[in-house]
Design a protein around this nucleic acid. Sequence first.
DNA 1: ATAAACCCTGTACCATGGTACGGAGTCAAG
DNA 2: CTTGACTCCGTACCATGGTACAGGGTTTAT
Lengths: 140, 140
Amino acid sequence: MDTMTIGQLARSANVSVETVRYYERRRLLPEPPRSPSGYRKYPGDSLRRLRFIRRAQDVGFTLAEIEELLALRTGTASQCREAESTAARAIERVDERMAELSRMKTALASLLDSCRNRSPAGDCPIIEALEDAEAVDEEE
Amino acid sequence: MDTMTIGQLARSANVSVETVRYYERRRLLPEPPRSPSGYRKYPGDSLRRLRFIRRAQDVGFTLAEIEELLALRTGTASQCREAESTAARAIERVDERMAELSRMKTALASLLDSCRNRSPAGDCPIIEALEDAEAVDEEE
DNA sequence: ATAAACCCTGTACCATGGTACGGAGTCAAG
DNA sequence: CTTGACTCCGTACCATGGTACAGGGTTTAT
């Protein structure tokens, strides 16, 4: 038998048992057959699927997107288009988030900078800047 | 009377009434005095404080950090050190997150790239890559 | 005087990706 | 045969930063 229990599967993929069950609830993993006593018995390729999910998460797909990708795995050309556009959307999200972080970093760095160069006797420039700043307020 | 109702305050700071009450629960805003009928009556400087909170959020401080910053507003030099280190921590968080996003973007871009250059008859390279890739797996 | 617009409290809910717990049944080793 | 490790299910809970009721009371304008 090349079947595994949920614990073996979870350990192999480096996730918790709870996580495996959670993915099943989310329909990312199909319901596996059960033993007579009701234990889940996973066929070998469940591990491949579980790893697929984790890798996709690592590159920043959400679980909802992974669900889409999994639905496409039968593999015709038009389905590849869909995977492509899912990936493109993920890249856009990443870009937006990076731009936002970059703005934040600029604002923070200038706060910190003013702090390091401050006149030794004045009030804290970080707090002052947040109190009156328009300087920081170019968002949205 | 230079006091405002919660609605006036919220509108001035461009947040919702619920948000103001939420900040009060979180102790970011002090409990204001009440009118005889129990309405909150905010003194003018509540608006300054509320704007402080929003600006700090805009530059990426969490509400917990903002609580710290607010606690420091009395303003001695050593407290400035603390504000400085709060800001430095925030910058570190931003940097980490940017590096992570950058890794994600590289991985996604290579997936997308393989898709655009794929042999016209093969399976979807995105899905294949997620299925066998070690390429993607250099995280953590 | 009545309706609209405002305020009050308390509680539940949203998304996201899980984690924790209780109470029970099952399986393997000694 | 018993102990410990494993599994089952269902439900509640975590963080984060709020939002959305429900079911009242108040203020303001007409």
